[in-house]
Design a protein around this nucleic acid. Structure first.
Lengths: 161, 161
DNA sequence: GCAATTGGTGGATAATAGCAACTAATTTTT
DNA sequence: AAAAATTAGTTGCTATTATCCACCAATTGC
């Protein structure tokens, strides 16, 4: 059972949000709040919930055995120390393990564990579905359109080709 | 002077982010991080920096004198307690003041101060410009396209017509 | 071989978020 | 008109993140 319908709060009349009406960053930031919360709910209990990065990390480690923390950090837009703590957490949960790279002994290589791989399977189902569901009121073609544009933005930001 | 170019970190090869590649929520969440940081930089020192909500609050109070905290809370997707603290802060900075509503003495009405109004003027310049600049590598028509779609999403989320 | 760089760690601080409990004022019920 | 339920806002607490900075060890460049 879910929380009681969360009472439809006050119905604000016709409000105009000023210049933000035409400010892309405003929409990104606002929608981020809503979609992140919704995602957290769906991931409840899956020790990959809360905060950005765990999901991406899990999938990347699963796909690229031996990948280095700093590579992931860069892709999830965190600094190395934040990344380190994130890995501590996930390692603590038994999702992955680190080894020191034979090539460069200050670097690490990350490897998925069984538990991690199992979780990755679930994640691959839940996460895209959550996104589709959440944005289901946007026609599919428009969703894809937005995604194609934002994908370029993301890749540009993190410097992917 | 800006920070030294932030050294172009490791250049990850051709990496594929698995199912996230086609997950809208992933892009929203990631881009949110980048755009929010960039915005914070540009607002540095303006006591409206950091965190979502202050900007929207300022503009709304400026545009709708007497507007109620809970209305704003709803539009910025925060709960009442978070909203309260946000107002404390802004009131502390002399940007707005609260009065108890004559109509309903448990409710409040928010009013802009001179300092607040002055800041709103700056904000109206900086914020949309930041967004345009940040996304400047996306052609204008595409930006508008995305915005039109995300606007509908936002309005839907907060229940605006 | 020495200096500069890089990968990762650890600490401290500050900021948010999310709950839950609480007061006071209103509205609804009966 | 009294009791019950709802609503607006406040407060306290906890947990989680985010930064920033200094630091160590290993590596790379001269």
């Amino acid at each position: 059972m879910r929380k009681p319908p969360a009472k439809p709060p006050i119905i604000p009349e016709d409000i105009n949000i000023d210049v933000l009406e035409d400010t892309l960053s405003f929409y990104i930031r606002s929608i981020n709040l809503a979609v992140s919360r919704d995602l957290d709910e769906r991931l409840e209990g899956l020790d990959v919930a809360k905060g950005t990065g765990k999901i991406t990390t899990l999938l990347l480690v699963d796909d690229y055995p031996g990948i280095r923390p700093s590579v992931i950090a860069h892709l999830i837009l965190k600094d190395r120390s934040a990344m380190g703590r994130l890995i501590d957490q996930m390692e603590g949960h038994g999702l992955l393990r680190r080894e020191i790279s034979p090539d460069d002994s200050r670097a690490q290589e990350l490897y998925i564990t069984e538990a991690g791989a199992a979780l990755a399977v679930k994640i691959r189902e839940i996460v895209p579905k959550q996104s589709r569901d959440f944005f289901s009121f946007i026609p599919e073609d428009e969703q894809r359109l937005v995604m194609d544009i934002l994908r370029r933005a993301y890749r540009r930001i993190v410097g992917l080709p």
